[in-house]
Design a binder for these strands. Structure first.
Lengths: 117, 117
DNA sequence: TAAATATATGAACAATTATTCATATGAAAG
DNA sequence: CTTTCATATGAATAATTGTTCATATATTTA
């Protein structure tokens, strides 16, 4: 038993339609999810995260290590921080950044597995 | 024992620098990884993937189900396909799309866990 | 308080991208 | 062969985004 969604021929089963409508998270959640992945979708930010895999670091060290300007790194750390992927700790003039949790590593590793296939 | 990368004060240990330099994937890999996440970084594509979690579907069904134009869906399926996240199967006039592997589900679930925290 | 240093931020610019519209391709049916 | 239908695609547009430059903020030290 199928329903006609759009085509001449019947393609999709009605219970599939209901299942999708039931399981599809609401628009706001989907938007947030896309926003999260957008944060991973820049190689500068990926590099920063890889650096932080090893240890917490201050802004200027990351900049030096990755050969990028302090400003660029600072802007990107702001993006990473507002996505709660990194957290900051101030020590005098210096601000140390570190991964906020292990999700970051898991997500990146899953992605890496996919591209290395 | 620290080295002075950029600041007056010594921040980062020399062995950390070596570790990062050793573990950091090459630029091309990092770029590919960012490109992969960029694909997940759009809510239309996320919706398409969620729909395909349930069953394979043809273009016009996805369009109808998600209330988007056939053209928009087709363009996005092309992006998903070139990232090897979905695969296509032709049956007459109709083209059915489905997830190409389980990585997709894993990556999305990891992301979802992060934002629901 | 003034100078020095680490970081943050606003504006501007170039580059990328998602959607729409119009149209092309490809397959089936008459 | 022509029509019809499903899908793909190219061009155009609007919107988003990463970097740079200049400058602001915050902290320490002289």
């Amino acid at each position: 038993m199928c329903i006609d969604l759009c085509c001449e021929e019947k393609c999709i089963h009605e219970d599939i339609v209901h299942k999708v409508e039931h399981d599809l998270p609401n628009d706001e959640t989907l938007y947030d999810l896309a926003e999260l992945f957008k944060v991973f979708g820049d190689s500068t930010r990926i590099k920063i995260l890889y650096a932080l895999f090893e240890a917490e670091m201050c802004v200027c060290d990351i900049a030096e290590l990755l050969n990028l300007t302090q400003s660029a790194i600072s802007h990107q750390l702001r993006v990473l921080k507002s996505a709660k992927l990194v957290k900051a700790r101030r020590a005098g003039k210096t601000v140390f950044y570190s991964l906020s949790d292990e999700h970051v590593r898991l997500i990146i590793n899953q992605g890496m597995e996919h591209i290395l296939e």
